[in-house]
Write a protein that binds this DNA or RNA. Structure first.
Lengths: 216, 216
DNA sequence: TTAATTATATGACTCTCGGTCATTAACAAG
DNA sequence: CTTGTTAATGACCGAGAGTCATATAATTAA
């Protein structure tokens, strides 16, 4: 009966080999130029075979994305501390994300790509997207720390935890999208990336209202 | 010598006709499916002719983007008031942006597309991008109101105005990118778009720290 | 008015790329 | 050994961006 299992293992193995080959292309040519023909050649398989393991090019890209996401998740988890309050842990999460963006530039670009497009229009198994969103996504980690922060008083308690988390996460994505894609353009304004990051955290923490602002 | 000028006018006219045709396709098929062949047919010109007026498909898309951006700029400008302080005007700008996203869904999607990709890798005249960024971009309006807000005391004076503006703008983009592309996915969490917008403005105004947070 | 020059327009063609499918090869079961 | 099943192949298709030799129209010069 071990024969079916061996086959299953081999199938997974081959799938991984393909992703490995795809990554080698991806890390050199960038994900925009990842063609199925090239992947097939690199994997020493025919193009048709790729489609036995992946529904589409998007599906293959998503597999690479998941590898990057796993790394990010690990980095984030490693920086959380039971001693810190929710707010500090959130700062730690932000820090991990930023470090990830610098240390794994390629994975990070792919990550941002998938985080800013309409995933549900992709020709990939929609179920794995749901799994990612609910369990494997960094947003879940953010959510947990926000809940913790509300409980320990380090964060505002007057906002709905889930909405609160999604908002913080989206703001962070926006900052990083702009920094990643517009950095060189913004240089005409002499805007330094780290300043924007710093200012972002400052605003999110303390707001942007001035002392003289009348609240009514 | 008005002959050269007439030619120039005619050239502009034809260029506009092409953009008009492209928009008709764009508004029905969406910008992902905007093909040069279709545009050519709709404009009653040959495909080759399109390339006399636009360097590439991206270039043509950028032209449509600019039309949308002009509308957004007008809407934003119309909602500014000399009587309001900088902070209130900023809220007005945010409101205009949100209204734009609802009333001009197609333009808005295209706008977000260009605001979240690496423009400088596109095969379009880089000079018009610079012009857009420096003068025609909504960011310039934000910048002006932030400066005003710092002056009139309605906004924090301890942040660099330019960095401050870019940060607020990027956060807003992030929020809208997520809402636009992930709305349906987030529904599994019962997150309502307006709640996120509301929470975003709230955080940006007053921060997210709780009362019990020790600042040191 | 006509010839020469220049600007504009054409559409067939190329090239790239994602995806498919009839055919073949490898392998397991009886 | 035969039959059935699963995996692999690569020639092929269709779509779409961009090009270019050729043709046409407009302008200028003679």
């Amino acid at each position: 009966m071990g024969i079916a299992e061996r086959k299953e293992r081999e199938k997974q193995q081959r799938r991984n080999d393909i992703i490995d080959a795809a990554e080698r292309i991806f890390f050199t040519r960038g994900f925009e130029n990842l063609t199925m023909d090239e992947v097939a050649e690199e994997a020493e398989l025919s193009k048709g075979t790729l489609y036995l393991y992946f529904k589409s090019r998007d599906d293959l890209q998503f597999a690479i994305f998941m590898r990057g996401s796993d790394i990010l998740m690990r980095m984030m988890n490693d920086n959380l501390s039971d001693e810190s309050d929710g707010y500090r842990n959130l700062l730690a999460l932000a820090g991990s994300f930023i470090r990830f963006s610098k240390e794994y530039r390629d994975y990070f670009n792919l990550f941002m790509h998938f985080e800013t497009i309409r995933m549900n229009e992709l020709n990939i198994d929609q179920e794995q997207i749901q799994v990612y969103l609910k369990e494997q996504s960094p947003l879940a980690l953010v959510s947990r720390q926000v809940a913790r922060g509300i409980e320990d008083g380090s964060m505002r308690a007057d906002l709905l935890p889930e909405v609160f988390s999604a908002t913080l996460w989206s703001q962070m994505l926006g900052i990083l999208v702009v920094l990643t894609n517009k950095a060189d353009l913004y240089e005409i304004f002499d805007l330094k990336a780290d300043d924007i990051l710093q200012t972002h955290l400052e605003i999110v923490s303390h707001g942007s209202l001035g002392s003289k602002h009348e609240t009514r």
